[in-house]
């Protein structure tokens, strides 16, 4: 692929890793994958009137382990917030996530790039949040079905600094991160089952510039191979000159909480 030396690609990655806790983040329901629809739910999962969340301590321990493994700063006091939007597989009408005070901040990961160089990639933050349920549309006429088994499955969202400069670096970062999570036994790293998902924020700028270019968000890259494509510099230059050709995501993910806007119509990528 052609490489234009005038431009550089800037990539930041957001990884959503499902935690292998015994039970869900805010209730005692099982997190086992593949059970019959709506058999692993309770009043809390279904957001019945009057229910309250009780935080799973096992998840907090897993988050702290992960934070230690990336040499992050562990907050003694972290905070959950609600992100409000309407979606049928989001029973409460909000996602409980961490915004202002995430449990982990300022970590780093050291990767070996394809040309053999070592590089430090900053990790901005790791926070705990809940996964949504699933909407099922295929083969159903006039209805959608909703499976809430996944509702309340704990996730860690791991946000890197925009330190990655190529698709190769992005791939190396993901491999390293996944192997750490597997080693810690906090996530099985299975991209096909969606337990390790990645969004990329990609922008392009002229070499030597410090300001970031217009950002494009690429959602749900469900294999490491696919993650390598968007970082391609030729594609990147195209994006800079024709940003409207890119598949635009929902804009900055960490906009001010609580957000009250719904996802854009036709966005099939779910709440993330």
């Amino acid at each position: 692929m052609a490489h234009d030396p005038l431009y550089e690609t800037v990539i930041g990655l957001e990884v959503h890793a499902q935690m292998r806790t015994q039970s869900k983040i805010f209730c005692g329901c099982s997190t086992t994958f593949g059970a019959e629809a709506n058999t692993q739910i309770c009043p809390v999962c279904a957001a019945l009137p009057g229910v309250l969340p009780v935080l799973n301590t096992e998840l907090v321990q897993m988050a702290i382990k992960t934070g230690l493994a990336i040499q992050g700063k562990i907050r003694e006091r972290s905070e959950f917030s609600r992100k409000n939007y309407f979606y049928p597989d989001l029973p409460a009408g909000y996602q409980i996530s961490q915004f202002e005070l995430p449990i982990i901040e300022q970590g780093e990961l050291h990767v070996v790039t394809d040309d053999g160089n070592k590089k430090k990639i900053g990790i901005t933050r790791i926070h705990m949040e809940v996964d949504a349920g699933k909407s099922l549309h295929e083969g159903i006429q006039g209805f959608s079905w909703i499976d809430l088994n996944r509702t309340g499955t704990p996730l860690l969202e791991i946000v890197s600094e925009p330190d990655l400069r190529s698709s190769q670096e992005a791939g190396a970062y993901l491999k390293k991160l996944r192997s750490i999570l597997r080693y810690l036994q906090v996530c099985d790293g299975n991209m096909e089952e969606g337990s390790f998902r990645c969004d990329a924020n990609v922008s392009v700028r002229k070499q030597g510039q410090t300001r970031l270019g217009t950002r494009t968000e690429l959602k749900n890259l469900n294999s490491i191979r696919r993650c390598r494509c968007p970082g391609n510099p030729t594609l990147g230059r195209h994006l800079e000159h024709h940003p409207s050709h890119a598949r635009q995501g929902r804009g900055p993910r960490l906009s001010l909480f609580p957000r009250t806007r719904s996802p854009p119509a036709g966005d099939s990528s779910g709440p993330h």
Binding site: P49, N84, P88, P91, A92, T260
Partner: peptide
């Protein structure tokens, strides 16, 4: 309240 009452959406109950 605006957040707490979001769950009354006609989907589940």
């Amino acid at each position: 309240a605006s957040s707490n009452l979001a769950r009354y959406d006609g989907i589940r109950f």
